[in-house]
Design a protein around this nucleic acid. Structure first.
Lengths: 146, 146
DNA sequence: CTAATTGCAAAAGCTTTGCAGCGCA
DNA sequence: TGCGCTGCAAAGCTTTTGCAATTAG
């Protein structure tokens, strides 16, 4: 899925520089999951003159418009990502913060079954696996800390 | 599982009034999941003279000692609960904050399988189902808001 | 032209920390 | 008695809000 200025207009949002830049960042960043702070810093580095408050406002609007998703991991760590065609869950490294996506139809189906069995209307869910990851840098960093 | 003053001592924690009271609250509360604020307010109501800072400090120590577990739901909503013998996940009502526990062995097994398949060392996980709950008060409250 | 949007600064949660005094062992 | 623990107040973080100036359509 790729979002354009048209999508902004459709959502009733004027096409402004901060919005375009933030959308671009979320689409093109190699890191798929960005925090508000990440986005703010990157824009400053690129010489854009945006305020952190604007970043938050825009992200909130994008979320309401169904353009992005907000994830809150443990330790009060929030990230945003462009909405994908497919739903997926997250694996988060507790050491270096790396995020990896995965999908599992069995778990997905079970979740719905659980909610239904208990008579709840399921409106959302979040599944995060917290791990120590296998990147050489991360393994090294952990050794050094001990 | 039931924790006693002995468990505090074993954890290297002196048996002080705030700690005993907080432990008691967590064990006896009908609501199984309490926020720091909940605990603080309840203690004040009971006439105990504790500071909110102490509540946070004690909860952090309890967590480190493996006596309680901290859960962070969406919307920056954190709760604490006494550690149970069995692991379980949570269903959280997005309207009234009610928390219901559930266990599902299929999901549990799948999670481990996913981590293993991808070569990660699983050290924790959190699965939350967000729902609109079926309590009459909650259903009413939602109607009124619309 | 005019309502939406922005940057800045201030404020609002929630949680942590510094410190002097109090209390458990 | 001594060190751990506590309450209070202040500070830290992330996120939100008020406001006057700016800008898209």
């Amino acid at each position: 899925m790729s979002f354009t200025n048209q999508d902004l207009r459709k959502a009733g949002l004027k096409v402004t520089l901060p919005r375009v830049k933030i959308l671009e960042l979320l689409e093109k960043s190699s890191e798929h999951h960005l925090s508000a702070e990440d986005i703010y810093k990157t824009l400053l580095e690129q010489g854009e003159d945006v305020g952190l408050a604007t970043v938050y406002r825009v992200l909130t609007q994008f979320e309401a418009a169904g353009i992005i998703e907000r994830h809150q991991f443990e330790n009060n760590y929030s990230v945003f990502e462009i909405l994908q065609a497919d739903h997926h869950d997250h694996i988060v490294c507790q050491n270096c913060g790396r995020v990896v996506e995965f999908t599992n139809p069995v778990i997905e189906a079970e979740q719905h079954a659980v909610a239904e069995r208990l008579g709840f209307e399921l409106i959302g869910h979040s599944l995060n696996l917290y791990v120590l990851c296998d990147r050489p840098e991360c393994v090294e960093a952990r050794k050094r800390r001990k």
